[in-house]
Amino acid sequence: MAAPRQASVDKRRLILDAAVRVFARQGFHMCRVSDIADEAGVAYGLVYHYFQSKDQVLDTLFLERWDVLLDAIRETDAHDIPARQKLEAIAGFIIDSYRHDPDLMKVIIVEVTRAANSFGAAHLGKITEAYGLIQGVVEKAQQSGEFRTEIPAEFAAATFYGALEQVLTGWIFGTLEEGEDAYDRAKAHLVETISDGLAA
């Protein structure tokens, strides 16, 4: 009895994975649902069986990945380790997400988090939730004396995430050097820049 359900899940995943490739290659606004169907090798109508529109496909891709990010930040913050190590883990998670699936990260950044007049506005609450979790890391470090208090935690969190997103944008548009060494250097440089600036 489980086989039909498994097939259903696989088809939905097939469509989502195809959408990532199409959105990354053509841009969300330049593609059609039929392009996603062709990429997935499924009938046009099957996409509408699982999703009402290509907007819903993009929403699903964003929310899936963003919820994983939020969970990763919460899990990291739950550990009794210095804030610097927490920021290293968060930066590492985001950069490794790009390393392992650059097309998906390109879609999320270009089509959602930087799309202030469309999807970014619609998901602003979800996006700022990540800032809030990072802000919590900084606030606890300020209370313990690890980070100085002159810099508002909210500003520090926005700066940390903004720097991360800007580095990813540089890789997406080819303005920053990519590669395994570059990814590792970016993790170290980002954390050094923010943590050393906040250090008590």
Rank of each mutant, 00 (worst) to 15 (best):
Y44T: 08
N117F: 03
D55T: 00
G145A: 13
A130T: 03
G174P: 07
T113C: 12
G132T: 05
R185T: 03
A200R: 15
K140N: 15
Y183E: 09
Q6V: 13
S34W: 00
D55A: 09
K54I: 04
K126Y: 01
D59C: 10
H49D: 09
E129L: 07
G45T: 07
K187V: 12
K140M: 09
A163I: 00
I36L: 11
G170V: 12
A200C: 05
D103P: 05
V107N: 02
R84N: 06
T169R: 14
G120M: 06
Y48P: 08
A91E: 07
L176A: 04
D101M: 07
R74K: 11
G179L: 15
W66C: 03
A182I: 05
E180D: 15
V22D: 00
R74T: 02
L133C: 07
A37F: 02
S144T: 12
I127P: 02
F28I: 02
Q56S: 07
H29Y: 06
L58Q: 05
T169W: 11
E150C: 13
S195C: 13
P102H: 10
L198C: 01
A199R: 12
A91Q: 01
K187R: 08
A122L: 11
M30W: 08
I172N: 06
R148C: 03
A130C: 06
L69M: 13
I151Y: 14
C31R: 04
Y50T: 10
G92K: 02
I81D: 11
V33K: 13
L87R: 02
D59W: 14
R32E: 12
E88G: 00
I127D: 01
D35E: 03
D10K: 15
A2M: 07
V20C: 00
Y183W: 09
G120I: 01
I81S: 10
A156Q: 02
I81M: 15
S144K: 13
D71G: 13
R32S: 15
G136A: 06
V112C: 06
N117M: 06
